[in-house]
Write a protein that binds this DNA or RNA. Structure first.
Lengths: 332, 332
DNA sequence: TTGAAAGCGCTAACAC
DNA sequence: GTGTTAGCGCTTTCAA
């Protein structure tokens, strides 16, 4: 664990000179430069970034808090964030909030204490007023996926409204008039936006918005299955279903299977979030593909911009998703 | 950004007292304790863990390097590691090596400089002799998933040999005598172990090991598809296929689909790594489910044990996988 | 062109 | 019971 003063001694120069050689931060003669470099090599020197961080008041470390890194969407975002961050010399600490407000808060406290340079956050439900303080006092905060209206915090997100609108419009064009919607927690902006897209599409087509065709709740496979069963048991059941997330999609598939319903012949289906598996399910799934990589890249790029002096934007950036046509929607 | 000396001033005590109150590290009278706590609250004090780390020579931060966090296996491992780490007050920096030795090396350098307390690593291919030095000089290193034979580094891994053995034995019992194997890079211990399990199962059943039924290569969907096409084009093609990874499994499915082969009627199939989607593919997939969570938990637990003073084991821990029976293997 | 030394915020040995 | 202070390893101002 050689330190700068060890190198200085061995090379017969001052610590200032060593530091300047190592960081290329002021002119040093060839002679001394060579001696310093050799000494550093001989001693197996590795700069201590902890000391450097203390001195410079920046850690080149970012925080990344999402509900669960196992989600295909968030792991893709995480990958993009890490790619971008590492290419600029930053590392990222990954945290799983599990949709738990208290856990999220605890992570934020820790990250403050660790003096991260910036935070990318998919907030849980709950009062997030304190984030304004965090952003003002500690480090820039960039939201992903979920807006926090009125917080003034910038957010990078899929254009959920448009995504849902296009999915539903597609089903309507194929002749469906009763389309069930199975969504996540109503209080999340993602759910609200997708629901809005669903409603606008119906309205524009002159179709009624039937509350009994809409189910919102916890986005798990089991709940999705239960929700599907419920909608499909209505006296005039939907001829098509639209699920807002991967877990709910799996729930729908389970329900169709357990009822021996053929898709798309008996019930058409469109999901939200494309994955590698979607082409291989029975039937291949039509989905709204979320631009996860773009969201991560944009969020991290903006964050790094701010760290390099640009002003924090207060806008929401919506990135358009893509409707991927496969068999489950029943179109040619 | 109040610091300890600010609190000391405000509370009219020494910095030592403040530190001891904050860390509960020596007796302080109720009186002073209360004054310190109030001052800390009033000033919105957050301990500076960078300074603390410099002083204590530990950061309560772990490194986690895998090829790609998007992989269902690694993201599950990451989640388990993070759960365990955070419950002990540690954070984890996640890095994606992309199977690139140079990238992996660069990350390790950075993590050394950041003075992480320990590293969990799924090594890429390449000479890893330097890891012994790292482990000796800087921090404990725990391998996951891939052994580095002769390195003396402990490894937590799926019992790949047994997993493959059981899958193949299952197919043999169902009457298959020509079973194709589609695996990843030959130099990886995971590939070698799974191949060994495949071979041992055949040998025990008195079946020949035909080299033309074995394909090893880059584990991508495209390569998996190409490999399947090749095996299925043999004059006496395999009646069952065994794929070593998720990507290769998707490739097999693509090949079966493009050739209009029914599974399991025309070709039976077993994959490695279970995912949420496996019950919903066409047909539902029989797979060897990897104990990803257990691997992550065990790795992190061992690492934390070492950090708390226990000696680093030099063993390899193999965690048994589970064969999950679904339709694709063609058994009742 | 280079060096001496202060100071980033914290802990803890030592002194009282 | 509490306080003084050195020092963790680095950067950078100031001086020469």
């Amino acid at each position: 664990m050689a330190k700068i003063s060890d190198i200085a001694k061995q090379a017969g120069v001052s610590t200032a000179t060593v530091s300047h050689v190592l960081n290329n931060t002021r002119y040093v003669s060839q002679e001394l430069r060579a001696r310093v470099e050799q000494a550093a090599r001989e001693l197996g020197y590795r700069p201590n970034l902890v000391a450097r961080s203390l001195r410079l008041k920046r850690t080149r470390t970012l925080g990344f808090i999402v509900s669960d890194i196992r989600s295909p969407f968030y792991s893709e975002v995480a990958r993009a964030v890490e790619d971008q961050a590492s290419s600029f010399g930053y590392n990222v600490i990954v945290c799983n909030s599990d949709e738990n407000y208290t856990r999220e808060l605890a992570y934020i406290e820790t990250l403050i204490s660790k003096r991260i340079d910036g935070l990318i956050l998919a907030p849980t439900l709950g009062e997030h007023g304190f984030l304004k303080e965090v952003a003002k006092f500690w480090f820039p905060v960039l939201l992903i996926n979920r807006r926090l209206d009125g917080s003034g915090l910038p957010c990078i997100s899929t254009d959920n409204r448009t995504g849902a609108y296009e999915a539903i419009t597609h089903l309507i064009r194929a002749g469906h008039r009763r389309i069930g919607a199975i969504g996540g927690l109503a209080a999340l902006s993602t759910t609200a936006d997708r629901l809005e897209g669903y409603q606008v599409a119906l309205r524009e087509a002159g179709l009624p918005i039937r509350e009994d065709l809409i189910w919102l709740g916890r986005p798990t496979v089991e709940e999705g299955q239960r929700a599907s069963e419920k909608l499909l048991s209505l006296e005039s059941p939907p001829t098509a279903l639209f699920a807002f997330s991967t877990m709910l999609t799996l729930g729908v598939l389970a329900a169709l299977k357990s009822r021996n319903l053929r898709c798309p012949e008996d019930v058409a289906f469109v999901g939200f979030s494309d994955t590698l598996w979607c082409p291989f399910t029975d039937p291949p799934l039509t989905t709204v593909a979320q631009p996860a990589r773009e969201v991560g890249l944009k969020a991290c790029t903006l964050l790094l911009d701010v760290l390099h002096g640009k002003p924090l934007p207060d806008e929401t950036y919506l990135i358009p998703p893509t409707l991927i046509h496969r068999r489950s929607c029943g179109c040619p």
